[in-house]
Computed example of a mutant assay.
Amino acid sequence: MDIVQLDRAAVLESVRIVESAGPADWDRPTPCSRWTLRRLVEHMGAQHLGFAAASRGEGAGAAVWETRPAGDDPAARYREAADAVLEAFAEPGVLERRFALPEIDAAATFAAATAIGFHFIDYLVHSWDAAASLGMRTAFPPDVVEAALPIALRVPGGERRERPGAAFRPALPCDEGAEGDRADTFRLVLSALGRSPDWSPPHGS
């Protein structure tokens, strides 16, 4: 699969997981520190809309990246945002464009394949964040997980990951010998991006 297809698989899996949440689930804790499931899903929707705007050459303005309240039906609002980015990335010629992504580097633009790669790895991990919050498992095809690992390993480390609100925390140690099947490869992806693969909601949540 090319990067657009990989991204589509990650986004559709995130939709499946978010749409499984019920009214009592939105205040659940998530692996994203201090974020409830509602806050996580609002962030995910905002990023979809920001990337959709960036694909049209409209990503430089801060307003297109703003997180907005999801209202009474966060899952429906999330599906609308997911549909918007999938439609934007499916446009003919999208891979020939450059994206402004001010949250990554306000002074640069990125080749479309690189930008969509950022989006892909983000939604692979955020799908897991939401699934972990709900006590679910993700269901990514093996080729999607395998494609994610080299991208995850290329994400820069350093002080950027220590900042409050960083998309990815510092990498966690993981048994590199575990690589071999899909579940173990996904653990490597998560660990490389600062997620503990064994995270579960605090007792009583």
Rank of each mutant, 00 (worst) to 15 (best):
M1K: 03
D105E: 11
F140P: 08
H48Y: 09
E103K: 10
P31F: 02
P31S: 02
L153N: 00
V64H: 09
I116H: 07
L188T: 05
E96W: 03
T30G: 04
G194V: 01
C174H: 12
H48G: 08
A54F: 09
L124C: 09
F51V: 14
A54E: 09
A147Y: 02
E96M: 07
S205G: 12
L172M: 14
P173A: 13
L101E: 02
H119T: 07
E179V: 09
A81R: 07
A75D: 01
A10E: 13
L188S: 05
W65R: 04
V15Q: 11
A178S: 15
R77N: 04
L190D: 06
T109Q: 12
I121C: 07
A192D: 03
W26V: 01
H126M: 11
A112P: 11
A88W: 11
R38M: 01
F168N: 04
L149W: 14
W65P: 06
M44E: 03
A166W: 04
E42V: 00
P173S: 11
V4E: 05
T30C: 05
T67C: 09
P29M: 04
V85Q: 05
G158V: 09
L153T: 08
L101F: 03
A90F: 10
A192Y: 05
A192N: 07
P173E: 10
R187Y: 05
R154I: 00
P142V: 02
A171K: 12
R154Y: 01
A24H: 11
L12N: 14
S33P: 00
R8K: 12
G157P: 05
V144A: 06
A60E: 08
D198Y: 14
L95W: 10
E19K: 11
E179L: 13
A60R: 15
H119Q: 14
G71D: 11
E146W: 02
P156T: 00
P142C: 01
L153Q: 14
T67R: 15
F110L: 12
G135H: 06
F168S: 04
G71C: 06
H43G: 05
G93E: 11
Y123I: 05
R16D: 13
P197L: 10
I104T: 06
L101V: 15
M1T: 08
T185G: 09
R187V: 06
R16A: 14
A108P: 10
R34I: 00
T114C: 00
V4N: 10
Y123V: 06
H126A: 08
T36S: 15
M136R: 14
R16T: 13
R187M: 04
E159M: 04
A63G: 06
C32Y: 02
A192V: 03
E87S: 13
G204W: 05
L86D: 12
G93F: 09
R163I: 07
L134F: 06
V41I: 07
G45W: 03
L49C: 09
D184M: 12
L95S: 13
F120C: 06
V94F: 09
V155A: 05
P173H: 12
P170H: 07
H48Q: 14
R16C: 08
A171Y: 07
G117N: 08
S14R: 12
V4K: 13
D83Q: 14
F168I: 00
E96A: 14
L190A: 15
E159S: 01
